[in-house]
């Protein structure tokens, strides 16, 4: 068991490193001129500089060093919690992230809870309700939810709840009430995805032989579904939780822009527009870290929920 945990943790570290390196390579070695790109972000127009001034500017941002050296020093810094300095904003990236991350974490947490509750309740009801029209309606809902673009849903919600009904603020990032609409926008997509996987999984589970055994004991349908079907049905759905969390991060970029929230997603959008490479690199690494950690947690939870996982010895070789 401890070998399993260590193995999975080591795997997670490798994935994280690979994500950081790949992002670095993509951002620095793209066919454009990385020097001009970054100096441009700082407001310096390379065309108008004399060679001496250019050399000085490059030295200031460490751009005169070989790429490998830049990579190693940036990786070394990242390992020690120093993510470099934003070129456009002239401030440490960690400070920028620190200011913005609270609002995004709150958004992600509320969206995550809504996703879990919404997706599970929908799937649960769809497999429990026996009246055909209601059942059909419930099973079709997720594909509707998943097929609307998020910015459109966001605008629709603002129109309805902020402008028409006046219940909630349309934009901004102060207080819990401003969280509800953006979180709803994200979770509408993510809970639809979760519900789709769970519904399939419920269908499969409820056709298993042990469900017949449970019903033959005289358990009620509710007891059978809750005690026997739910946990087994949730197992395959856990696998896509990692994907869904990744989706939540990318959704934050769109949603924070639509709702004018000052979070990491908004920062990502601004940094990409300003071609602020150190910030973009830091945000991608952060997103990768979240993704890796969630997947690690899911993998470690799996054996707790499914006793068969740990006990399978390798006998194929």
């Amino acid at each position: 068991m401890s070998r399993y945990i260590l193995g999975r943790a080591a795997q997670a570290v490798v994935v994280l490193w690979a994500a950081y390196t790949l992002t670095f390579v993509v951002l620095y070695l793209l066919p454009s001129d990385p020097v001009a790109l970054q100096l441009g972000a700082a407001g310096i127009e390379t065309d108008k500089l004399s060679p001496v001034q250019l050399q000085a500017a490059m030295a200031k941002y460490g751009l005169d060093r070989p790429v490998l050296e830049q990579y190693l020093s940036s990786l070394w810094g990242a390992l020690h919690g120093d993510l470099g300095t934003s070129i456009a904003k002239q401030r440490p990236v960690t400070a920028l992230l620190g200011e913005r991350i609270g609002s995004t974490v709150a958004l992600g947490a509320v969206a995550g809870v809504l996703m879990l509750v919404g997706g599970t309740v929908l799937a649960y009801l769809a497999s429990y309700v026996r009246w055909r029209p209601a059942r059909i309606l419930l099973t079709r809902l997720p594909s509707v939810g998943a097929s609307f673009p998020q910015f459109f849903i966001g605008l629709l919600l603002i129109q309805l709840f902020a402008f028409t009904l006046g219940w909630l603020p349309a934009t901004g990032s102060d207080g819990f009430s401003s969280l509800i609409l953006p979180a709803l926008t994200i979770s509408l997509l993510t809970s639809s995805l979760l519900a789709q996987v769970l519904m399939r999984s419920f269908d499969d589970t409820l056709s298993q032989a042990y469900i017949v055994t449970a019903r033959a004991k005289g358990l009620s349908r509710a007891a059978v579904q809750w005690k026997h079907a739910f946990r087994n049905a949730a197992l395959p759905a856990m696998t896509i939780l990692g994907v869904i969390v990744g989706l939540t991060v990318t959704s934050a970029i769109v949603v924070e822009t639509v709702f004018a929230r000052n979070g990491v997603g908004k920062l990502a959008q601004e940094s990409v527009v300003a071609q602020d490479v150190p910030v973009v690199l830091a945000i991608v690494a952060l997103a990768a870290a979240v993704f890796v950690v969630v997947n690690l947690v899911v993998d470690l939870l799996y054996p707790l929920l499914d006793p068969r996982i740990v006990h399978v010895p390798k006998v194929s070789r």
Partner: peptide
């Protein structure tokens, strides 16, 4: 439901899949 379990018991066909694997 009142009949199942208390009046009629069932021994199903395939023991390999007849029990809940997670309980």
């Amino acid at each position: 439901r009142a009949l199942r379990g208390s009046v009629i018991g069932l021994v199903p066909q395939d023991p390999m899949v007849g029990l809940n694997p997670t309980h």
